[in-house]
C-alpha cells in the first residue's frame, strides 16, 4: 500500500487561545484503503487529532503550527466555507454517539438525501434510490422502513449504521471514526467492526480509527499510533506493536489491558498528566519504570528505529 499518502498530518500543534498546548508536533500519514489505529487514554489528544484531520477545531482551540494535507491540499489554508465543502466529499466523521450526529426531527432518509444533494447534486428518485442502496450497504435491515424512520425509532446499533450510511453518502475517501463502537454492546460491536472491514475492502476506504480499546484496535488496524499527553509516542504495524511494543507506555498499556483469560494485570502507576502540566523531559518519565536522569531533563524526539517503526524514547 505504498505510494503518495492520501492524508498527511505534519507537525501539527494545537493550543488553547493564550493557554497550554493540547497537541505537540503530531505527524502521521494514511494510505488509500488503510486503517490507522490511534490509541490512547482520555485526554491524550486523540479526538482532537481526529477532528483536525477534518479541519475542525472545538471552540477556543487553535492550530498553531503544522499542516493537514489531503493529497496536496492543505486543509488548514482553506476558508471555513471551502473546508465545509471538502468535508463530507473527501473526508467524513463518525463518532461514538450517533444521536448527536442525527437530527431528531428529520427522517433517516431525509438526512441522507440532504448530503446527497449537497455533495453529489442528487435529488428526487435518484437520491431516494441511492439512499436505499446506502442503507442496504451498511446492512440496515428493511431499508424501506428505516428510510421513513426517525432516529429515536432505531436501536443503538441501527443508528450507528444509519450514521455510517450518511457518512458514506458523499463518497469520501477517508473516514475518521472516533470511538465508533464504544457505546455498543459487544455482540453489536462485532457486527459493526465486520462492516468496517467490508467497507474498506469494497470501497478502498481509508480509516483513521480512534479508540481507547486496544483489542478493537488490534482487530481492525493495519498500523497503530499510540498517543500520550498530546504527542505520538510510538508508531508501528499492528503485528509489531502487539508482539513487540517498544515504548514503555505501550508496554504498560498492554500489560494493564484485561484480555480474555489473562491471569495477571500489571497496573501502570499514576495517571496521564493534563495539558499545561506536561513534564519538561519525557512526558511519560514520571510513570516510567525505565526512567533515567536524561528522561527527566530532555524531551525525546520521535525516531524511526526501523522502516515504519517509530518510537519516542531515549532507551530504545
Amino acid at each position: 500500500m505504498e505510494g503518495v499518502p492520501l492524508l498527511r498530518v505534519e507537525g501539527l500543534c494545537l493550543g488553547l487561545a493564550g493557554g497550554p498546548f493540547l497537541l505537540k508536533s503530531v505527524s502521521f500519514h494514511l494510505q488509500v484503503g488503510e486503517i490507522l489505529g490511534l490509541v490512547g487514554e482520555s485526554g491524550c489528544g486523540k479526538s482532537l487529532t481526529g477532528l483536525s484531520c477534518l479541519g475542525l477545531f472545538p471552540p477556543g482551540v487553535i492550530p498553531l503550527e503544522g499542516r493537514v494535507l489531503f493529497r496536496d491540499q492543505d486543509l488548514l489554508s482553506l476558508s471555513t466555507e471551502e473546508r465545509r465543502r471538502f468535508r463530507g466529499r473527501h473526508l467524513a466523521l463518525i463518532f461514538q454517539e450517533p444521536l448527536s450526529a442525527l437530527n431528531p426531527v428529520f427522517t433517516i432518509g431525509y438526512q441522507i438525501e440532504e448530503v446527497l444533494l449537497e455533495h453529489r447534486g442528487l435529488r428526487g428518485k435518484a437520491a431516494r434510490e441511492e439512499t436505499l442502496r446506502l442503507l442496504a450497504e451498511v446492512r440496515l435491515p428493511d431499508p424501506e422502513v428505516r428510510y421513513r424512520n426517525y432516529p429515536h425509532e432505531l436501536s443503538g446499533g441501527m443508528r450507528q449504521r444509519a450514521m455510517i450510511a450518511m457518512a458514506l453518502a458523499g463518497e469520501p475517501e477517508v473516514l475518521v471514526a472516533d470511538e465508533p463502537t464504544t457505546a455498543l454492546d459487544v455482540t453489536v460491536q462485532a457486527q459493526i467492526l465486520e462492516l468496517f472491514k467490508e467497507l474498506r475492502a469494497r470501497r478502498h476506504l481509508a480509516f483513521l480509527f480512534i479508540s481507547h480499546d486496544l483489542s478493537v484496535i488490534q482487530e481492525v488496524a493495519d498500523r497503530v499510533a499510540v498517543m500520550y499527553a498530546g504527542e505520538i509516542v510510538e508508531e508501528a504495524s499492528r503485528e509489531a506493536l502487539f508482539e513487540e511494543p517498544l515504548h514503555p507506555y505501550t508496554r504498560g498499556l498492554l500489560a494493564a489491558f484485561p484480555r480474555l483469560g489473562v491471569r495477571r494485570l500489571e497496573a501502570l502507576p499514576g495517571q496521564v498528566p493534563s495539558p499545561g502540566r506536561w513534564p519538561v523531559g519525557c512526558r511519560f518519565a514520571p510513570r516510567c519504570p525505565e526512567r533515567k536522569e536524561r528522561c527527566v531533563k530532555e524531551h525525546p524526539e520521535l525516531r524511526e528505529v526501523n522502516p515504519g517503526r517509530k518510537v519516542r524514547c531515549f532507551r530504545r
Partner: peptide
C-alpha cells in the same frame, strides 16, 4: 459473547440482530 470479544482476526459468526 466470547466470540464477539474483539482482538485477533478469527473465524467469527457474528451474532445476528440485537437483544
Amino acid at each position: 459473547l466470547l466470540a464477539a470479544v474483539p482482538g485477533k482476526e478469527r473465524p467469527r459468526r457474528p451474532l445476528w440482530g440485537e437483544p
